[in-house]
């Protein structure tokens, strides 16, 4: 069952990634990983995150990721799975799911969590892309943060919107059709 779910979320994410290829750093993938982990547990989220990047890291019109960058991309993508799995157990999210009309507060909560997970992803992956081009880890962190900021802003802004809109709707819809949350 979990393998099938990982395959479905991987296919969904890859499909949307390639459709949105002309919009660098604007992807539904991160939101889908979060939804996978929130609804079906950490294993499904992590499995999807890793399997997506195993394909997207190699078959990508912008070029292949080298093994080190791929490691950082997979680790960073796992942040969304971890955030989704933890939030599904948090009382803040549980309370909202039990509300009759939770949209606004869910949008706020998921938007903020998505924004912060995206920031962590951007810092880690920008750091990873400079780690062997600089003289120290600190330099890699600072240069990565500064030079990656135009792309990071677009990534974070788009994910803020996706997490505040798509994620709550998907989770509420899944609850309405009777899908239980994984504990």
């Amino acid at each position: 069952m979990k393998v099938a779910l990982i395959a479905v979320f991987t296919a969904l994410s890859l499909g949307t990634n390639y459709v949105m290829i002309d919009l660098p750093n604007v992807k539904l993938m991160d939101a889908l990983i979060f939804i996978a982990a929130f609804l079906f547990g950490l294993e499904v989220g992590l499995g999807s995150a890793i399997s997506i990047w195993l394909i997207y890291g190699f078959i990508n019109p912008y070029g292949q990721a080298d093994p080190l960058l791929l490691f950082f991309l997979m680790t960073g993508e796992s942040f969304y799975a971890i955030a989704g799995a933890f939030l599904s157990r948090a009382s803040a999210a549980q309370d909202l799911l039990n509300n009759a009309r939770p949209y606004k507060r869910m949008g706020l909560l998921f938007g903020l969590i998505g924004f912060q997970a995206t920031f962590a992803y951007d810092v880690l992956t920008n750091f990873g892309s400079w780690i062997f081009k600089t003289n120290s880890l600190y330099q890699a962190l600072v240069i990565g943060l500064i030079t990656g900021v135009p792309f990071a802003i677009i990534h974070e802004a788009s994910n803020l919107v996706f997490f505040a809109t798509v994620v709550p709707l998907a989770i509420i819809a899944s609850r309405r059709i009777g899908l239980p949350l994984q504990k």
Partner: peptide, 19 residues
Amino acid sequence: LGLIAALLVAAQVGAYYYL
């Protein structure tokens, strides 16, 4: 959560300004 997000926005704006 809001304060953390505000801090991160400030960090990004600062980095963008520096760039």
